[in-house]
């Protein structure tokens, strides 16, 4: 129904009119520019991540070509001879993170259950905030505290006891120094606890209260009710744990300062070890020669890919739970 347009016409005319409408449903020039600008900013961030993958891949190509898959399976890390095998770092990264989770998961579950299900709000709020503050303390500060407080404490009071009790296993043997996989794992446990417990709190809060009431109405005790809630939130809790794992895998400073930094694979938790992140932190500025640097960048690429997959999976799990139940998913 287009009659002749008068000067009152609402139609935008001109050369760029169709462009404006592609960019902006309102057909307003300012909107088109604004939307294009914001889109470019968003795409810039996407481009950054793609550039990151690209840069890490290109710069590690030398090492990838030279060692291929052997890079992941060799335990020989000898910069002087130009031999680079990443297994000690992979082992150290995985083991320290596992120790952290073994300690942190029960602790975080306890904290979350206490704060969401048991504590009255006037206690849960300030205490919850204090637990969150643990996440605000910088990694390097944990490292400093670890060197001068935690490591001596473990050396004198904890590790001898463990050696006496479990010395018959290969896990707690060897010289006791306070510096090594065990201490690195414990400092990581302290660092990921606020993260895991925060996500578990969100997940528990997202479990509908009708489920609690249903359980209570069936004559369940308080503890049985909590079990119902935990079972219901299980996928989200798994997501929280994996999110914590992702954080532990990439944590750098505190671990570097406490794990001993020796590229060896040893079953004993008391032995010094090395993580991927620590290796990069320690050796990157000292790396002489292209192959050495390339091997370190390849370590970075591995770390990037692993944390990418781990985090993606964790977010998927947490998002699924908090979305289904209409929760907030603050950390997801």
């Amino acid at each position: 129904m287009s009659v002749a347009r008068t000067d009152e016409s609402l139609v935008v005319a001109g050369k760029w009119a169709s462009w404006r409408h592609t960019l902006s449903p309102t057909g307003n020039l300012g909107d088109a520019i604004f939307r294009l600008l914001m889109l470019l900013v968003a795409l810039f961030v996407v481009a950054l991540v793609i550039a990151m993958v690209f840069a890490l891949s290109t710069d590690s190509m030398l090492a990838i070509r030279r060692f291929g898959f052997r890079f992941l399976t060799s335990t020989n890390w000898n910069p002087i001879k130009g031999e680079f095998g990443a297994l000690p770092f992979i082992y150290g990264t995985v083991m320290s993170s596992l120790i952290a989770l073994v300690i942190s998961v029960p602790l975080s579950l306890g904290i979350a259950v206490f704060l969401v299900e048991q504590a009255p709000p006037f206690i849960a709020r300030p205490i919850g905030f204090l637990v969150e503050l643990l996440a605000a303390i910088p990694s390097v500060v944990y490292g400093l505290w670890g060197i001068f407080v935690l490591a001596p404490f473990l050396r004198v009071y904890v590790e001898p006891v463990l050696a006496r009790l479990f010395g018959w296993t290969p896990l707690f043997t060897g010289p006791i120094t306070g510096i090594g996989l065990f201490t690195g794992g414990i400092i990581l446990a302290i660092m990921v606890t606020p993260i895991i417990s925060a996500v578990v709190r969100d997940v528990l809060a997202a479990v509908p209260s009708t489920q609690r009431e249903a359980a209570l109405a069936l004559g369940a005790t308080k503890w049985e009710t909590i079990r119902v809630v935990l079972v219901n939130g299980a996928p989200g809790i798994a997501g929280a744990v994996i999110l914590g794992l992702g954080r532990a895998l990439g944590e750098t400073m505190a671990v570097t300062m406490l794990i001993g930094n020796r590229p060896e694979v040893s079953l004993s938790l008391f032995a010094p070890s090395y993580t991927i992140a620590s290796a990069i932190a320690n050796e990157f500025t000292e790396a002489t020669g292209d192959l050495y640097l390339s091997a370190l960048v390849e370590l970075g690429l591995i770390l990037f890919l692993v944390t990418f997959i781990v985090n993606g999976f964790a977010r998927f799990l947490v998002w699924n739970v908090t979305r289904r139940t209409g929760g907030v998913g603050r950390a997801a």
Binding site: M1, S2, V3, R5, E8, S9, L10, V11, V12, A13, A17, S18, H21, P25, T26, G27, N28, D31
Partner: peptide
């Protein structure tokens, strides 16, 4: 149509 102009045709200045 507002005053005879279709407001849903392509190119309308919605603002």
């Amino acid at each position: 149509l507002i005053d005879g102009h279709d407001i849903y045709i392509a190119g309308t200045d919605v603002v």
